[in-house]
Write a protein that binds this DNA or RNA. Structure first.
Lengths: 231, 231
DNA sequence: CGTGGTCCTTGCGCTGGCGCAAAGACAGTC
DNA sequence: GACTGTCTTTGCGCCAGCGCAAGGACCACG
């Protein structure tokens, strides 16, 4: 369990800053706790803060006109969020919802502005973090446009494994409460199709399923599907 | 026709920098010319340069395993490109192709590093540009995941109108050579479906079509489709 | 002004995956 | 330990949009 200053000093957004900056960031940060299913903020709301996840898991979601929701991504401790609103718009372009009990740091826009002024390396760090997320989203956009559902689902699960996977006996467990609905909203399909796809994979011994739970028994098998290789 | 320094000094990436910085950027920039259909660089290639479009139109594309291509976005003069490769990876995540004769500035990674060092505001500008593009891509991702083809195509055309639209008698012309195939790759559908959809809209008098040419006669009609409103 | 290349249209058949309905499996609570 | 709400599974019917084939239109170039 890293200390708060350690987490702040090593996360992608604030890495490489002088100790004085880290200390200032720690001093300016507010810490809040959120229970499962609570919305930290929602899409369209004016940006109150720049956030960083301290503990737990949350998801960023986006709403469509018809009421359909999509999951933009899941976050793990150390991930910044709400940054786009602070940088580019005055409003959050996504909602943030705790998928389990969470704790998050927050900084007011004024504090952020002052810190960026004093430590301009934060600007470059932000650009780098954005670039990485952009690269991932471009890739997912391509997948959504050109690949079949099974392929996209396999990729999504492998990506989650890289992000939150935990080795346990029998395989790699996705270490977050992940409903079929969530997975559908992450991959641009429906609850039903996800259920059918996963059930089939369970038959074949690739995964083991539970309520809001996926354990990967054969990462290699999923790669085969993700890359559309002959089995 | 703005001068080179004017274009560099007012583009989103370098806006607000001191005149000395603009002058340095101008001095360090190489200018190259590319004919229609020429690739400036392609996906996966190590990043040779940070680019900015000086004149013409180009598109950023991404290739799928099966050979299918998608269009990430079209660029107009003043738009930076290749930035993600410089910031986050060593390689370009997309290809850049001239859709008509183009001219582009380029800066070597070493020059970019030196300039960022000297003028740290560039870092924040990059972050802001990234944020804006990220916001757009998140929105398009949601559309692709939740909306029907016609709706997405209408949105894409309206977005292009905002970006490159030129008032002419009879409506707003999309001022770039835009094939049905391009539009398909931009919206995640096929050439055929695009052709059918546009033909129908032409029947209804919403647009006027030509070879690689779309003229919007009724923006309002397209909005109705994009937002799925009752007509 | 004819020829070849590229881009566009339209008809037809097919299917992946959606949508709904109904029922089953858990987990937490009192 | 029964109850209640949430999450998941599975069967069935259907259709938006894909894939292909064939033909037409337009442009550039010799």
């Amino acid at each position: 369990m890293p200390s708060d200053l350690e987490l702040i000093g090593t996360c992608a957004l604030f890495r490489g800053l002088p100790p004085a900056a880290i200390a200032e960031l720690g001093a300016a940060a507010a810490v809040e706790r959120f229970e499962k299913k609570v919305l930290l903020f929602h899409e369209g709301e004016p940006a109150r803060a720049l956030w960083m996840l301290r503990a737990g898991r949350l998801k960023l979601t986006k709403l469509g006109g018809n009421g359909q929701e999509i999951v933009v991504r899941f976050l793990i401790p150390g991930d910044p969020f709400g940054a786009i609103a602070i940088l580019a718009g005055a409003r959050y372009p996504v909602s943030a919802e705790a998928v389990e009990a969470c704790e998050a740091f927050s900084w007011t826009p004024a504090d952020v502005a002052a810190l960026v002024e004093r430590y301009p390396a934060i600007g470059m760090n932000s650009a780098r973090v954005m670039s990485e997320r952009m690269q991932e989203l471009q890739e997912r956009y391509r997948e959504l446009a050109t690949e079949r559902v099974a392929q996209r689902v396999a990729r999504a699960i492998l990506r989650l494994a890289r992000q939150t996977g935990r080795r346990v006996e029998g395989g790699v467990l996705l270490d977050l409460p992940l409903s079929r609905q969530d997975l559908a909203e992450l991959t641009g399909t429906t609850l039903f199709t996800i259920s059918r796809t996963l059930s089939e994979w369970e038959q074949q011994g690739l995964v083991e399923l539970g309520r809001e739970r996926v354990l990967i028994k054969s990462p290699h098998g999923l790669v085969t599907i993700a890359e559309d290789l002959p089995s």
